[in-house]
Design a protein around this nucleic acid. Structure first.
Length: 422
RNA sequence: GUGGCCUUAGCUCAACCGGCAGAGCAUCGGAUUGUGGAUCCGAAGGUUACGGGUUCGACCCCCGUAGGCCACCCCA
C-alpha cells in the first residue's frame, strides 16, 4: 500500500458505521422543520467576504481570526476575487431574503437549512473546521411568542434525538435603545477595575465591552459585581424578555436566565440563548445557540425587519447521543438473499429485484460459497433476515429465515414484505 | 492564534541499555462431509506519521514538519 493522503486538518470522514446515527438526526431535523411550518432554503457555501465582515462585525472572532478564505481561479487565471466559506448561516440567508425581495411574501418568512459551516480555528474534540448545522430562521416576526417557540423547538429536537438533560441558558442583551447605556455602564465598571483584567479582556473592553463578560479569565468577584444586562433594559426590551420567560414557563421548557450569554456575533439583540447538556457547561460544548437579530436586515441594506433563529450542531448532537448511550438507527431491516444452488445466480438476482421493487433493503450474495458461509457473511453484515432460494422448492416459494431468532419457514415470495415489516 | 501531552498493521497495544518489528481483535481463504455468530488450520496486512541528524547499527537519542488529543480564546 502506498502512502495515503490524509484529510485536511480539522475535517473528518463520515464513515458507514456513523451513517445511521447521522441520517436519523438529520431526518429528525427535516421532519421538525416541516412540522413547525418552516420552508427550505439553501444558500451557497461561500459568500463575499464583506457580507460577513459587515453582518457579523469586524471584531467578532468569526471574522477576526476564523475566516476561511478561498480565492477563485478559472483556467489557471486568477480572478481578482476572494471569498469566505460561511462560518454561520444567518447572514447568507438574510442576503438571499433581500436579494429575492422575500419581504413582500405573505407572513413572516420561516426558513430552515442543513449544511456545512467552516471556521478556521484550532481543532479539538467536538470542534472541527468543517461542521454541520441545522439552522432555522424567522424573519419578520417581532413578538415574544416566536422566541419561545423556537427555544421549544430546540428542546423537542434534542428530545427526539435521545439527548436528555438539555437546558437552555437565556438572556436579553437589549436593543439599539438600551444597549448603548448598558455598554457605557460596562465600560465604566470594567474601566475602573482595569488592573484586574487580562490583556485580552482589556482589548475586548475597547472593541466590544459585552464580550468581556463571557471570558473565562474574568475574576469571579469582578464578574459578580458587574452591571447586569437585565437591569439596563429599556421598558420595551424588559417587557419582551418577561413575556418570553412567561411563555417558556407555560410550555414547561427547561431554561435558566444567565446574563453571561452575550454571543460572539455583533448582530444579536434582545433574546440570546445557548443549549447545553446540564453539567457540561464548563467544557465549551454548546449543542446549539441562537438569538434575535432585529437590526441585521437593515444593516445589510433592507428596511427595518426583526429576525430570530438558531443553529444546532449535528456533529455535537450525534456525539452527545452516543455519550449518553443512545443508539440511533435509520432505515429498514437488511435482507440477504442467499442460495443453496451455487449456480443459480440469475434466480437469486431476480428474487432480490422483486424484493427491492417492494421497497425492501436487500443485499444479494453472488458467491458460490456453500450456504453456511453465505449465512455467516449475512449475519456479519448486519442482516436481520435471510431469504434462501433453492430450485428444489416449489415455484414461488422461498425460505425466510430470521437471523436473530434463528427461526425459519417456507413462504411465498410475495408474502415476504408483509412478513418482515411486522 | 498560545501552551502541554502524544503518533508502531484497519483497531488496541508490545518490542530490555541503541542490536533481526511482534501479539490480540478485525479482514480474507480452508476444515468441521449441504443452514450463520463457536472451534481449529492458514493467508494477507509495515518506508515504525513525514524529512533530516548522531551512530558500526535508530521504533528507541537530537532537530524540523504534519496530524491527533487536552487546556486557553471562541463557539456548533
Amino acid at each position: 500500500m502506498s502512502r495515503p493522503v490524509s484529510a485536511p486538518r480539522g475535517t473528518r470522514d463520515l464513515l458507514p458505521k456513523d451513517g445511521p446515527a447521522w441520517s436519523r438526526v438529520e431526518e429528525i431535523a427535516r421532519d421538525l422543520s416541516s412540522r413547525y411550518g418552516f420552508d427550505r432554503i439553501e444558500t451557497p457555501l461561500f459568500e463575499r467576504i464583506e457580507l460577513f465582515s459587515r453582518g457579523l462585525g469586524e471584531s467578532s472572532d468569526a471574522v477576526e481570526k476564523e475566516m476561511f478564505r478561498v480565492s477563485g481561479a478559472a483556467g489557471g487565471v486568477e480572478e481578482q476575487s476572494e471569498w469566505a466559506l460561511r462560518p454561520e448561516p444567518t447572514v447568507g440567508i438574510v442576503r438571499a431574503y433581500l436579494e429575492h425581495g422575500m419581504h413582500v411574501l405573505p407572513g413572516p418568512q420561516r426558513l430552515w437549512m442543513i449544511g456545512p459551516m467552516f471556521r478556521y480555528d484550532r481543532p479539538q474534540a467536538g470542534r472541527f473546521r468543517q461542521f454541520v448545522q441545522w439552522d432555522v430562521e424567522v424573519i419578520g416576526d417581532p413578538g415574544p411568542m416566536v422566541d419561545a417557540e423556537i427555544i421549544e423547538l430546540g428542546h423537542r429536537f434534542y428530545a427526539e434525538a435521545g439527548v436528555t438533560d438539555v437546558i437552555a441558558y437565556v438572556n436579553s442583551i437589549g436593543d439599539a435603545t438600551c444597549r448603548p447605556g448598558y455598554r457605557a455602564a460596562l465600560i465604566e465598571y470594567f474601566g475602573a477595575h482595569e488592573a484586574r483584567l487580562t490583556d485580552d479582556s482589556r482589548r475586548r473592553l475597547r472593541v466590544n465591552p459585552l464580550r468581556v463578560l463571557d471570558g473565562k479569565d474574568l475574576d469571579p468577584e469582578l464578574a459578580a459585581g458587574a452591571p447586569r444586562s437585565a437591569d439596563h433594559l429599556c421598558d420595551a426590551c424588559r417587557a419582551h424578555f418577561a413575556a418570553v420567560q412567561a411563555l417558556l414557563d407555560d410550555l414547561g421548557v427547561r431554561y435558566e436566565v444567565d446574563n453571561r450569554i452575550v454571543r460572539g456575533l455583533d448582530y444579536y439583540t434582545r433574546t440570546t440563548f445557548e443549549f447545553f447538556v446540564a453539567g457540561r457547561r464548563g467544557q465549551q460544548q454548546a449543542l446549539g445557540g441562537g438569538g434575535r437579530y432585529d437590526g441585521l436586515v437593515e444593516l445589510l441594506g433592507g428596511s427595518s425587519t426583526p429576525g430570530i433563529g438558531f443553529g444546532i450542531g449535528i456533529d455535537r448532537t450525534v456525539l452527545a447521543a452516543a455519550e449518553q448511550g443512545v443508539t440511533l438507527t435509520a432505515g429498514t431491516p437488511l435482507i440477504a438473499v442467499v442460495g443453496a444452488d451455487t449456480d443459480a445466480l440469475a434466480f437469486r438476482l431476480k428474487v432480490a429485484a422483486i424484493l427491492r421493487e417492494e421497497g425492501l433493503r436487500v443485499r444479494v450474495d453472488g458467491s458460490s460459497r456453500k450456504l453456511g458461509r453465505q449465512l455467516e457473511s449475512a449475519a456479519k453484515l448486519g442482516a436481520r433476515f435471510a431469504v434462501l432460494v433453492d430450485p428444489l422448492l416449489a415455484d414461488g416459494i422461498v425460505i425466510l429465515r430470521d437471523l436473530e431468532a434463528s427461526e425459519q419457514r417456507e413462504i411465498r415470495l410475495d408474502e415476504v414484505p408483509g412478513a418482515i415489516t411486522m
